[in-house]
Each structure stands twice: as structure tokens, then as C-alpha cells.
Computed example of a mutant assay.
Amino acid sequence: MPKKTAKLHSVVFFIYPGVKLLDLAGPLQVFNDATDQLSGAQTYRTALVSADGAEVATDTPVSVRSEPAAQWCNPIDTLVVVGGRGAQAASRNAVVVDTLKRLANRSHRIASICTGAFLLGAAGLLEGRRAVTHWRYCTDLARDHPETRVDTNPIFIRDGHIWTSAGVTAGIDLALALVQQDLGRDASLSIARDLVVFAVRSGGQDQFSTTLHSQVSDQSSRFDKLHAWMQENLHDDLSVEALSDRVGMSPRNFARQYQASTGSTPAKAVEAMRVEAARRYLEETDLTVVRVAEICGFRSDERMRKSFIRTLGVPPHDYRRQFQGEVSSTPHDEES
């Protein structure tokens, strides 16, 4: 007797002129690469739809074909609204917004990539919800949709059956999180490995990495190699004396040159890197606070507690509880 074919989970990408190609291609690739861990069978059926079904221009020379949204009469498992330069114009287009509303009414789960959140807002899907978009446009989203609680920090947010993400590559993180919800963590990690994704990032992580911020601040690139080494050796001695010795400078001259180049003292830069690393451990592992403090170079959990309070306003134990609470239950979770 032949095996019964499992129902494919439908993922519909809603696109419009001016979408960002990577906002579309990254998440699309994640879903197309997802297979059942036991049988190897495809688990998702993907489609690109637009209001009129025409060929859609992206922000690159590449255009993509789409299907007319009117053809989709069946329930949709996951609806993904892609971001891009054309998002705000599309959010003011009544035909596009009405089409999105009809698709959303048939969708079990809805997600936006980057500025796709503007279309969700225009369709009334973010009212009373917490959401995020690309950091450049968070202020605009909050202004256009004051009924939405816009959080500028996370790379993605789940509020009930609505998911929103920050810009560009955060769409891949969001797609991996959706796969994890559907198929489990092992399936998500397997796709990440195949795509050579450096790390599977949780939604609570900041859009800005401390190391990247240091690189942007240091316009001369003078301390790029030092920053990379610091990030990989947080448990080592990162005092001014040790760092100055590493770059072959006197402690006083190093401290002066470092602040002139980056706008921060070496001590503050080290603390920021250690706090960022500790946050990831608290978000993604069950390691004790004492162990996290040791790994990240704080030397004691009390020193880490003081750093957390100084930089984040909460101690590590409360941060972990707050973070876990945000991702596991939200005001609208009863809808999901």
C-alpha cells in the first residue's frame, strides 16, 4: 500500500514593485531547503503572489514572476510580506492593501520582512501589537502607526500569530525561527548549516552587534583586528595594559588613541562586548549565571550583575526571565 503523502505547508510571499531581492530570496531559500528529517520529503510549498500577478521589479536588475493573489482562495499556512524601497508606496496603494487584507484573512500565520511591516500596519494587522522593522525605519513606523508598540532593538518579534523582523538578513533568522516552530530545532539548525549561516540568532538579539558598532565608530579601521581578537577572547585579561601590549603601544597612548578613534574607552568597549555575549548565553542556553559570567570574562557573577544593571537596567536573572517571557508568551498568544 503506498504511503500517504504529507500535506505541504503553504508559504505565500506577497510582493510588489521595489521589493528588496535579499528580503525575498533569503527566507524563500530557507523554506525551499526545509525537508522532513526522517523521509527527506519537501515540507513547504512556496509561491510568490502580487496584487495583479505581473512581473515584479526588485531593487536589483533581477525581476521576479508572480501569481495573481486572486487565484489564492484556499487557506494559507504562512503569509510573508516582503520589504524593500517600495514598501511605503505600496502601503499607500489601496488595491495592494486590500489584496493583503484578503490574503491575511485566510492566513494562519503572518510575517513581515524589514519594511514589509508598513504594509501590515496599513492593513490594520499591527494594531495593539509589538513589532519591529529595519532600524532606519522604526521611527517612521511608530509615527505612521501609533497604535503599534515599535521596538527598535530585536531582530524579530512574535506577537501571537504575527511575526515581524528587522532588515535584510534578519529575514533569514525569522524564517529559521518559523521552521523551528513547525519542524523543530534540529531541522532549523540543519538548514542553517547547509546555508552556512554563522549562528542561529534568537529574536531577542539586538539589530546592532557591539563588534560592528565598534567597527563603524572606528572609521580609521585601526583597531579592527584588535576588536575581532577581543570578541574571540572575552575570558582573557582585557585590561588596558593587556590590550595596549597587544597592539604595541603604551597604556596611556593606547587609551587616548582608542577613545579618539572609537568614541569609547577601552573599558566600556570590553564591558559592552561581554554583556552582549552574556545576553546570548542567557537567551539561548540553560547555563547558570555563574557559568556565563565565567565564560564571558566577568570573573564573578556579581561583576556581571553590576554590568547588566549599568548597561541594561536589569540584573542577569531578571533579564533571562524577561526575555523568556517575551518570546514564550505575548499578549496575543491565545490566537496562535
Results as ranks from 00 to 15, higher is better:
33 D>A: 12
115 T>V: 06
120 L>W: 08
164 T>N: 06
243 L>C: 05
162 I>M: 11
214 S>P: 00
304 M>P: 10
168 V>T: 10
106 R>M: 11
106 R>I: 05
305 R>F: 00
143 R>Q: 11
180 Q>A: 14
40 G>K: 04
216 V>G: 00
201 R>V: 12
87 A>M: 08
279 R>I: 07
317 H>T: 09
292 V>I: 15
251 P>A: 07
91 S>T: 07
126 L>A: 04
233 N>F: 03
54 A>E: 14
200 V>P: 06
6 A>W: 01
301 D>T: 02
190 S>T: 12
27 P>A: 01
165 S>T: 06
323 F>S: 12
300 S>W: 11
301 D>P: 03
155 I>S: 01
159 D>V: 04
277 A>K: 08
165 S>H: 12
67 E>K: 14
121 G>P: 04
146 P>A: 08
321 R>L: 11
208 F>H: 11
226 L>S: 01
95 V>P: 00
147 E>S: 15
74 N>R: 14
1 M>K: 11
304 M>V: 05
13 F>G: 02
9 H>D: 01
206 D>T: 04
145 H>G: 00
32 N>W: 06
307 S>Y: 07
206 D>H: 13
207 Q>H: 03
2 P>G: 00
79 L>M: 01
27 P>N: 05
144 D>L: 15
60 T>Y: 12
255 A>N: 13
76 I>D: 03
113 I>H: 03
94 A>Y: 07
64 V>K: 03
218 D>P: 07
97 V>N: 06
85 R>K: 10
264 S>T: 10
335 E>H: 11
307 S>T: 01
38 L>V: 12
24 L>M: 11
44 Y>C: 01
293 A>P: 09
251 P>I: 06
25 A>R: 04
285 T>M: 09
231 Q>E: 12
50 S>D: 08
263 G>R: 08
308 F>I: 02
288 T>E: 12
119 L>I: 03
142 A>D: 08
184 G>K: 07
301 D>S: 15
262 T>C: 09
82 V>C: 05
5 T>R: 14
87 A>H: 10
29 Q>D: 15
56 V>H: 04
273 M>Q: 12
192 A>W: 06
81 V>P: 09
262 T>L: 07
18 G>K: 08
16 Y>P: 03
158 R>I: 02
292 V>E: 05
174 L>V: 09
35 T>Y: 08
303 R>G: 00
305 R>V: 00
233 N>H: 15
2 P>R: 09
138 C>F: 04
66 S>D: 07
50 S>R: 08
71 Q>L: 13
177 A>Q: 08
35 T>D: 00
189 L>E: 15
153 N>W: 12
13 F>M: 04
18 G>Q: 05
100 L>W: 10
201 R>G: 00
